[in-house]
Design a protein around this nucleic acid. Structure first.
Length: 806
RNA sequence: GGGCUUGUAGUCCAGUGGUUAUGACGUCUGCUUCACAUGCAGAAGAUCCCCGGUCCGAAUCCGGGCGAGCCCACCA
């Protein structure tokens, strides 16, 4: 017997254990030997091992779990592994701080990072488990594992074979504070106040000529970065700018230097900013980089990786950027070269981790060619179905607007080593041997096969997206098992957040496409972000962070899961506690309904030989026909990732089943009128409901199912998704009986009668040929009993109408 | 500045061309009716952002405007 109160914490824990390690754990594992069932592979996102999940993860993993359970119940052989994105700067920073270990103790440092990460994984795994997420843990992977390194490094060797890896001096976004190159995606922008300096640039004597209005032969350039004046390589004006048209092609002297640079016309110059003249430096910002390449301008590396000016900057060499700026302004002032200064607010790029300004610095970096493959990526990715479809546009826009190749090297330690050597003598890259993988080139000395000189090992590690962008290959055993690979690649589904379309989705599509000539997944399901209860992005500084653990303990996993199913793919969402509370109350309601049914089935035995369908009343057929509708709708909805079908299920259970059907059959159960048919209906209704609800609220569905079904099978078993019962849809018209009872209730309410009070008569009007009226005739007893009415009169005329008499 | 999304009761959200617009929270009224007061019955509350267009018919499709959010870019 089901106890009066549903102890969700205890029940949820019990079934989580059975699913993950207990008697049902096989259900959740991919069956390699099953050659009959269709395979469904989910390329789950490996979260970065920060130590805890946030609500966005929770939403993401609940959706994945709903789909995986649904697909299993539909008979698919589901591969849903879970991995961890482990190697990253945040871990390094924390380990550095906690153990006071320096990065030059490479091996010890790495070991501490690994230990630290393992602890964090355990926490996050626990959090996944308590929301009922059950991936196939037997296929867990970590990007820091030797096998994972091997796959990443192997893939890079393959890229090298295709001529797509190169090493180059290249301006990259560089964080002088962290001492590392960073990806565009790791930069965020902030507004700060800065000084716009208007500086005189004197025209070259030969070019000076007669100037427009005054005799002074200089132009004024506004810059926020005077410290880069030493690296000034050109001056740009807009071709249509009347003020400067006559200066195009002429030269100006760069103040504080003995160099002169050309004035070039460029239509992207904003005439309205500053004086409409741009000083191009190597490198002040991304525009500079673009233009220097476009016009093939000289590169003067003014800033080094420590954020200090280089020897090319003469007397300013060795000064930090801020110091140099101050000093150069002083010197310009001394020469009377500053016309004026203005305070302006400016958006500056800062490193998202440390919040310090980012510089462009020319350093040795490793690259993967990607710009050459834009067209191929765009073409092949058209075969991927995006949910929602408009997310495809975001992807395409990103690909089309990419400006340069992918910098894959990072000057860090906890990462996958780049498996290459470089011969300074021959200026050439020497890849590691496949048999040596996984390898850390810094730990293995090698000589150049051509010249015999000692090679320089690549000391850098890979960008973490290099690790995570081959997950579809990892989960399909790309390197180790061809048969398995053919069965499980490409993935059926890639679920992920929209904020990482330009990183994880893009890099995965690019890498896997290059390596396999196939797209990595057929569909990509995009989920939105979860904002705090105040509608703002959750952040510590706003104090609006909600920890998943708190709400799971308070409301239960099944309640949280219902909340996660109230959103449509792609859109961001606000965490409203009342919504989760509703989920909890639904669980209570469902529990009590199940108890009621259980109580009334005590003396029921399902006799296989009896044809119950003939005994069923129209009311029974009505609820079963409605249930059929829900079975159809739920199946279709989940095929299309419409999780909001949960709401329809809630309404069906709460209002149609509990409020109406259960109330309509009480008299039959209590007074033994057509009782068998009611019991039969309740029995199959409950069984179907549990199966329908199982993907969404798996714990309570399992708990109730186990009480009714004594054969020991799990509700989540393969192929368990219900088929329609097969009730004629015309019985949906019995809904009018419910409408009549509602009218009676309203009459009683309006007249301040108790609901239990009997009234004398109900008159029902309606055309005789209408099917709904026919059913009403058959349901007179239901109306009398459930509505507590002495007499029911039916008039075969006029429009459908109900009148009550006291 | 560019792209995308979005605007529906006091609040949140569903609705993707067809009677009277879904549901929840909140509010108000009544009810301890033997599954459930974590409940039941009922009520009030919406110019479906504004303007125009297509259509027999628009919350829904199209154009414009205004507001909001996200992503991207960003002033030298």
């Amino acid at each position: 017997m089901l106890p009066k109160d549903y102890n969700f914490l205890e029940v949820e824990k019990k079934w989580q254990n059975e699913w993950t390690t207990g008697k049902y754990s096989e259900i959740f594992k991919f069956n390699e030997n099953d050659s009959d069932s269709e395979v469904y592979v989910i390329d789950t996102p490996p979260p970065f091992t920060s130590g805890k999940l946030h609500m966005g993860h929770v939403l993401n993993f609940i959706w994945i779990d709903v789909i995986a359970r649904f697909k299993r119940m539909k008979g698919f052989n589901v591969l849903c592994p879970q991995g961890w994105d482990t190697q990253g700067l945040p871990t390094e920073l924390k380990v550095e701080q906690k153990y006071k270990v320096r990065k030059n103790e490479r091996e010890r440092f790495r070991k501490l990072c690994v230990e630290w990460t393992k602890e964090f994984i355990a926490n996050m795994k626990f959090q996944m488990t308590v929301i009922g997420y059950v991936p196939d843990w037997s296929r867990e992977y970590k990007t820091m594992d030797p096998d994972y390194w091997k796959a990443v490094q192997y893939s890079l060797l393959k890229f090298y074979e295709k001529g797509m890896i190169y090493k180059a001096k290249h301006p990259v976004h560089f964080c002088p504070s962290c001492g590392t190159a960073i990806a565009k995606a790791e930069i965020e922008y902030t507004t700060r106040e800065t000084t716009l300096n208007f500086i005189k640039f004197y025209l070259d004597a030969e070019d000076a000529g007669p100037s427009n209005s005054n005799d002074e032969n200089f132009i004024t350039i506004a810059t926020t970065r005077p410290e880069l004046i030493q690296a000034s390589v050109a001056v740009f004006v807009h071709p249509n700018d009347e003020r400067y048209k006559n200066l195009i092609g002429k030269f100006v002297h760069v103040p504080l230097t003995d160099r002169k640079v050309k004035i070039i016309a460029e239509s992207e110059v904003d005439m309205n900013f500053g004086t409409g003249i741009v000083m191009i430096c190597s490198f002040g910002d991304e525009h500079d980089v673009k233009w220097i390449y476009k016009y093939n301008l000289e590169v003067i590396n003014a800033i080094n990786e420590y954020g200090k000016l280089t020897n090319l900057c003469g007397i300013y060499a060795g000064l930090k950027v801020e110091e140099a700026r101050k000093k150069i302004i002083e010197d310009l002032n001394a020469k009377n070269s500053i016309v004026r200064q203005e305070k302006i607010s400016q958006n500056v790029g800062i490193h998202e981790r440390c919040k310090k300004p980012v510089e462009f610095i020319s350093t040795d970096q490793w690259f993967i060619k990607v710009i050459d493959f834009k067209d191929k990526i765009l073409e092949k990715s058209k075969n991927i179905m995006w949910i929602p479809d408009y997310m495809e546009k975001r992807f395409d826009d990103w690909v089309e607007n990419m400006d340069w190749d992918w910098v894959i090297s990072r000057q860090r330690v906890f990462g996958t080593p780049i498996p290459f050597y470089y011969c300074e003598n021959c200026s050439k890259i020497i890849p590691a041997e496949i048999s040596e993988l996984p390898i850390d080139p810094t730990l293995k000395e090698k000589k150049c096969p051509d010249c015999g000189k000692i090679l320089s090992p690549a000391g850098d590690v890979c960008d973490c997206w290099v690790d995570s962008s081959i997950t579809p290959l990892i989960i399909s055993k790309w390197l180790t098992d061809e048969k398995y690979f053919n069965k499980t690649y490409p993935s059926s589904l890639r679920p992920q957040g929209h904020e990482i379309i330009r990183t994880w989705a893009f890099y995965t599509i690019f890498r896997c496409l290059t390596l396999t000539e196939q797209i990595p997944f057929n569909k990509i399901l995009v989920n939105g972000m979860v904002f705090g209860p105040d509608g703002k992005k959750m952040s510590k500084s706003l104090g609006n962070v909600v920890e998943p653990n708190e709400i799971v303990v308070k409301y239960g996993a099944d309640a949280v899961r219902q909340w996660a199913c109230t959103f449509v793919p792609g859109s961001d969402t606000t965490l409203i506690m009342k919504d989760i509370d509703y989920g909890k109350r639904f669980i209570t309601k469902l529990w009590n309904a199940a108890r009621f049914i259980e109580m009334n089935l005590q003396d029921y035995e399902h006799n296989q030989n009896e044809n119950f369908e003939n005994l069923l009343t129209p009311v029974d057929k009505w609820i079963l026909a409605k249930c059929d509708g829900m079975i159809e709708k739920t199946g279709q909805a989940l095929e299309n990732f419409n999780f909001t079908i949960m709401k329809d299920l809630q309404n069906f259970v709460w209002h149609d089943v509990c409020d109406n059907y259960l109330e309509l059959v009480k008299y039959r159960l209590y007074e033994n009128i057509n009782k068998n048919a009611a019991q039969y209906t309740l029995d199959i209704l409950l069984r179907n409901l549990m199966k329908l609800l199982a993907p969404f609220i798996p714990h309570i569905a399992e708990e109730i199912e186990q009480n009714f079904n004594k054969d020991g099978g799990s509700v989540h078993g393969k192929g368990n998704f219900p088929n329609v019962i097969g009730i004629d849809k015309k019985y949906l018209n019995v809904e009018n009986v419910v409408a009549i009872i509602e009218a009676i209730r309203k009459f009683k309410g309006d007249n301040k009668f108790k609901l239990s009070e009997e009234i004398s008569k109900v008159k029902i009007y309606g055309k005789q040929d209408a099917t709904e009226v026919k059913f009403i005739e058959e349901c007179v007893i239901d109306i009398k009993k459930a509505g507590k009415v002495k007499e029911v009169e039916i008039f075969y005329s006029g429009v459908f109408k109900v009148e009550c008499e006291r």
